[in-house]
Simulated scan of single mutants.
Amino acid sequence: MAGPLTGINIIEFAGLGPGPFCGMMLADQGATVTVLHRPGRPPDPRLALSRSRNLVEIDLKSAEGIETARKLAKKADGLIEGFRPGVMERLGLGPDALLSDNPKLVYGRMTGWGQYGSLAAAAGHDINYISLSGALHAFGRAGEKPTPPTNMVGDFGGGGMMLAFGMVSALLHAKTGGTGQVIDCAMTDGSAALMAMIFDFHNIGHWRDERGVNMLDTGAHFYDTYETSDDKFVSIGSIEPQFYAELRQVAGLEEDTDFDAQMDQRQWPALKEKLTTLFKTKTRSQWCDLMEGTDICFAPVLSLAEAKEHPHNVERQTFVDVGGMMQPAPVPRYSVTVSDPPTRPV
């Protein structure tokens, strides 16, 4: 694969979710990523999380399989594993063993709770990790229970993406004269880091520690989604005064002086009711005709199927065909080191 990571060799121990996502990110950027999987259990070739990989079947319950894994790690620049703490050590494939073989190896460890701490040995999922970090508490409507944003924040943002960042950082360190090292990537830590701005706002008194009452969590009338007359939805994010003024102008609200109180939180519920009624008067398509492409900060809320067909996404090739499956394209994009199109694993 061509890309900025061409020439980097990564060993990925097969797993679920955030580990494969990290492997996908590295492979998308040109790294050669070899997945070691259980006998008869190769990654599903239809999935984006499996793409652009080399597959090697290996039995980690056998001495021969362990020796094969160790030999591959000797020649690798990096390694990704997502087992519970201690599993790789019991297999004889822990960091001490593999770094003694290959002092430049970057050993990436993906877990929910981290390699140490009172919860390190416990089972868990994204919903639990973002609960502990304070993130889940912030997601949801006012007066309602916390709502997980699928598993974006723990598994993928705070997990897989954070590990990919850590891998590239440590690989750069090793390539510029440093040694290899272990990366302890915990989804609790990562999801807390993703909440940095919200913690900042709370620390300086600009964020109430409640759901659905703040500017960015659907508390504000000018930052929310609204249902249209055809039972679809649109989103607005008219925070800045000039964007808010354009919203009022296009929506016919210039003469309604109630909307002068944009930042008066006491007025937000009543203003939201007005906008709820207003957006129900037209279809989503009609609102798009009026607002899409303006500085209102507007977009239709598209389904998974619709997102692939939107003209902007089509123009940018945001989704690409990989073996007959439409998948999100590799990101980000580079001006010089253009990545090859992703492929099915082989």
Rank of each mutant, 00 (worst) to 15 (best):
G3A: 00
L5Y: 02
T6L: 02
T6A: 15
G7A: 10
N9S: 12
I10W: 07
E12G: 13
F13C: 10
L16N: 06
G17R: 11
G17Q: 03
P20R: 07
C22S: 06
Q29C: 00
A31H: 03
V33S: 03
L36F: 15
R41T: 13
P42E: 05
R46N: 14
A48T: 03
L49T: 12
S52C: 00
R53E: 12
L55S: 08
L60A: 08
E67H: 06
A76C: 13
D77R: 10
G78D: 04
E81A: 10
E89P: 00
L93C: 08
A97E: 11
L98P: 13
S100F: 05
D101W: 15
V106F: 11
Y107Q: 06
Y107K: 11
G108F: 08
G112Q: 10
G112Y: 07
Q115M: 11
Q115D: 11
Y116N: 13
Y116V: 14
S118Q: 13
L119N: 02
A123E: 13
I127C: 00
I127L: 14
G134T: 09
G134D: 13
L136P: 01
H137T: 10
G140V: 07
R141K: 15
A142C: 09
E144K: 10
T150I: 14
T150N: 12
N151S: 06
G159P: 01
L172S: 07
T176A: 00
Q181M: 13
Q181K: 08
I183A: 03
D184E: 04
D184R: 01
M187P: 07
T188L: 05
G190H: 03
S191E: 02
A193P: 03
M197V: 03
D200F: 05
D200S: 15
H202G: 04
G205E: 09
W207S: 08
W207L: 10
N214Q: 12
M215Y: 09
D217H: 01
H221P: 01
Y223M: 07
Y223F: 14
D224S: 11
T225E: 04
D230R: 12
V234S: 04
I236L: 11
I236G: 04
G237Y: 06
S238P: 10
Q242C: 02
F243I: 08
G252H: 08
D256L: 05
T257A: 15
Q262E: 03
Q265H: 02
R266F: 01
P269S: 11
P269C: 11
K274Y: 06
K280N: 03
K280Q: 08
K282E: 05
T283G: 09
T283N: 07
W287R: 12
D289T: 15
E292T: 09
G293F: 13
D295T: 05
A299L: 04
P300A: 06
V301N: 10
V301G: 09
L302E: 05
A305D: 15
E306L: 03
A307Y: 14
P311K: 12
H312M: 06
N313S: 01
N313R: 02
V314Y: 07
E315Q: 11
G324A: 06
G324H: 09
P330K: 00
R333K: 01
S335N: 00
P341V: 06
R344A: 02
V346Y: 07
